[in-house]
């Protein structure tokens, strides 16, 4: 099946994301990429755990002083919900319903933006209230690197999804762009999973000390 072909609801296949060889390659390659990303984040988690609460003087804020569950919880809910809305988007993609897919992707982007906004507020709060910054201690460096890397992934994901939405807004779905949407949503889920680990390892485990 050629990628450029004009499709209708009737001709739209069950798994439009892997109809052509290029699409199959992209699908598999992206999974491998996520495998590499997993090692990357695992390394950052290891660094964080090794340097958690390692500060040069005893009057500096530690994990248990910094983190507040309500904020982290709201952020978690925003990101988890956005993962769910991207599932809806993919559901509509598989049903050749372009408009609804765009709608749900739009909601996903909004939720992601909300998350990012809260994260910026959070970082700002730590720097100004607790003098806990990237350069203040090894703990600070490790914290901002781990959470910041995740935040950068969220930002990149938002740019990616938005670009796809705008680029394809006029021409609807095809076997050429369906895998692009699919892979972007896969990326979004991955970011979500990483956050679940951050929420557990950094925030929940940080609270108990």
């Amino acid at each position: 099946m050629a990628a450029e072909q004009k499709m209708t609801y009737e001709t739209w296949p069950a798994s439009p994301e892997k109809q052509t060889l290029e699409a199959k390659n992209k699908f598999l390659g992206f999974w491998f990429f996520l495998g590499g990303e997993t090692v990357l984040f695992a390394s950052l988690f290891a660094t964080y755990l090794a340097l958690k609460d390692k500060v040069p003087s005893s009057d500096m804020a530690l994990a248990k002083d910094l983190f507040e569950i309500p904020l982290a919880f709201i952020m978690t809910m925003l990101l988890l919900t956005s993962s769910l809305t991207s599932v809806y988007a993919m559901y509509h993609m598989k049903n050749f319903n372009f408009k609804k897919m765009q709608l749900w992707l739009g909601i996903t982007v909004l939720l992601g933006l909300g998350f990012l906004g809260l994260e910026i507020y959070e970082f700002n709060h730590y720097v100004h209230e607790f003098h806990h910054s990237f350069t203040s201690s090894a703990f600070g460096s490790a914290f901002y690197t781990l959470v910041g890397f995740h935040g950068a992934h969220v930002a990149f994901g938002l740019l990616w999804i938005t670009t796809l939405m705008i680029r394809n807004s006029k021409r609807g779905l095809s076997l050429y762009n369906a895998p692009k949407f699919y892979v972007a949503s896969l990326y979004w889920h991955f970011i979500d999973v990483v956050w679940v680990f951050i929420f557990t390892v950094v925030y929940l485990m940080g609270m108990v000390g």
Binding site: T47, A50, L51, K54, V55, P56, F134, T135, S137, A138, F139, G140, S141, A142, T145
Partner: peptide, 12 residues
Amino acid sequence: GSNFFDPAMGGN
């Protein structure tokens, strides 16, 4: 300016 490897700042 981070401190991952600076023992004086808690690094390792």
